[in-house]
């Protein structure tokens, strides 16, 4: 083992020059560097989405992994973009709130429509994160129970207490067999 390690020692790994990922179905090839249009190694995916790519639907609230406002889908699963480095997203497929509309028709996702129909928001700031968490659940389980919906949203902060209307909105889509 130590022999291998010694050999590896001389073979220093170098920093990547660019990162390529898919965001809302579109391939993005981002340079890594210090210029304004580039991605710094320290940038979170949240920062890149909002500041570099202008996708401000994903919200910054706690920036510390505790509130779910910055939730996006990575390869279909809900993750926190504030605790994810953009440079570590190579090859990943990211979906943000902006990517839920039908790309061809512009029609809202049934989940989005259900949030409107149930007024499942008040101030609306945490809504994109909540919708993305719910979307991740529905991707895996199209007919969740109410308990499963609550569990899937248990990492999402909502201070207005729109929880009850949110659960109804998600269940309505679930029952619709979306």
């Amino acid at each position: 083992m130590s022999d291998i390690t010694v050999r590896e020692k001389n073979k220093k790994i170098s920093q990547a020059k660019r990162v390529t990922l898919i965001i809302n179905g579109e391939q993005r090839n981002l340079e890594i560097g210090h210029l304004p249009h580039q991605v710094e190694t320290t940038h979170t995916l949240l920062h890149t989405l909002r500041e570099t790519l202008g996708l401000t639907g994903t919200k910054l609230t706690c920036d510390n992994g505790a509130c779910g406002s910055c939730t996006v889908l990575m390869d279909g699963k809900a993750i926190l973009s504030c605790m994810t480095l953009t440079v570590e997203c190579g090859g990943k497929d990211i979906t943000t709130i902006e990517g839920l509309k039908d790309r061809d028709t512009g029609a809202l996702d049934p989940l989005q429509q259900s949030f409107i129909d149930h007024t499942a928001f008040q101030c609306g700031f945490c809504t994109p994160g909540i919708i993305m968490s719910a979307k991740a659940l529905l991707n895996e389980n199209s007919t969740p129970t109410e308990v499963q919906v609550k569990e899937a949203l248990s990492g999402n902060f909502c201070r207005c207490i729109s929880h009850y209307q949110v659960v109804r909105a998600v269940m309505a889509v679930s029952e619709g067999g979306a």
Partner: peptide
Amino acid sequence: DAVGIVTGT
């Protein structure tokens, strides 16, 4: 503002 809220705009 419903559409704006659910689409993040």
